[in-house]
Design a binder for these strands. Sequence first.
DNA 1: AAGTGATAGTCAACGCCGCTGACTTGCGCT
DNA 2: AGCGCAAGTCAGCGGCGTTGACTATCACTT
Lengths: 244, 244
Amino acid sequence: MGTNSDRSVGPASQKRGRRARDSLSRAIILEAAEKIATSEGLESLTFQALGKELSAHPTSIYRHFRDKDELVLELIDSLRSRSYGGNLQKTGSWRDDLRLISRHVREHYLRYPQLAFQMAARTTRRPMEFANVEFALDALLRAGLSPDEAVLHLRAFGNVVRSLSSMEASLLALDAETRKRDELAWEVEYRQLPAEEYPHIASLAGQLTGVGDPRIFDLAIELILDAIELHVSRRPVTPAEPEH
Amino acid sequence: MGTNSDRSVGPASQKRGRRARDSLSRAIILEAAEKIATSEGLESLTFQALGKELSAHPTSIYRHFRDKDELVLELIDSLRSRSYGGNLQKTGSWRDDLRLISRHVREHYLRYPQLAFQMAARTTRRPMEFANVEFALDALLRAGLSPDEAVLHLRAFGNVVRSLSSMEASLLALDAETRKRDELAWEVEYRQLPAEEYPHIASLAGQLTGVGDPRIFDLAIELILDAIELHVSRRPVTPAEPEH
DNA sequence: AAGTGATAGTCAACGCCGCTGACTTGCGCT
DNA sequence: AGCGCAAGTCAGCGGCGTTGACTATCACTT
């Protein structure tokens, strides 16, 4: 045991500072977790880092969260509501609306790369998810898709947005060195491939970009929006359109 | 149970069961790695598990691979060639070719759900990756895209294919109970949302499918192919680009 | 005001993980 | 014949999440 004979320590001497009773809570821990995750990345969110940030013993957190997973899920939810405020305003153009929401999702994922993978695949059934679905459905219906089509295109569009964002985010989550090596490959190793075997690669190697090129996301979104527009414009008769 | 490594009565009386010199190789290690990864998942592919599988000391692997990353990249590409090694035959139709390769990739990812995430984001710089890139580039150029466009569209198409496949695969990797709960949400919880706040969801709830609906992938691919075709058909001049 | 019991914070330790550097072994070459 | 050196081994480092025992503290009784 520590030789802290005087247990009633003075106000200034917290050297052997055990935290005061009830001075921790889920909210306080989540606040510290967010600070770490946003400043150093979520890969640095460890119990030891949390303990340091809180000036508490790392395992104290187990008094408030069953395990790390519970902590992370709780963190996700608190971050999402902070990130997606009430920024979903219709512009009048369905294309702009879908572009807008895709950018929101992508930015949110890129802000929290470590969580992106979970966010992309899981269904959270929470207000922000409901609002996103409603918003996108509205845009697709205004584009002129039938309800049946809108439902399926919502999934195609949404899955593309979320999965692309998640993938881009996962690149950020790789450690810097690995990422650099991967991206550099497209500029170095691909240039050295034999032209006999890979003629197109050989002739285009100088222009090949890495898979993390930010232009890719925008292009993919525009391609899908183009296709939707094309599809609607080819429709023989415009279905009953409630738009005033 | 693990009554292996009997030291008493050995055929060659190896006192310590040290593996014979040169009895390990990259190929042999990769074979064991594949066995572990496909049966228990990539997260179970550890050096200790590998050592056990090979009856070798875990660190022996470091004689053949610089680090775990190199091993994983090599494993991915070896699985890839096994999965669709010689199946990339041009059909004459660029649309069919891109569809073909997208199906190959998707099936491959669904076959190895645990690896899909890594496969989607990482650049392996190995033969099967080269072959895929060459094949898709050829199709995009035949579609009529300029080299500049082809390079960027290769990325958009490829990223969509890989990230969608990876997301779909990740659903398979979730434990069954979680998956069922998520999919059920679209059939149950979404039907109960108030129509005042979410009118579209309320009216379409019966038709909303889960994010894992297999039709989504095909639709997304067709949308992108449609958009490419549209883009080329709108080009004022013939797409023939004999010289740079 | 003393005592007590529940509980929050602490601590050492466990078993994993990837990885390193020093060692031993034994094959192939001269 | 014996030497060099690559291949296999081994103890150990630092980090991770997690556990169960310990201890301080506070609210409530008496």
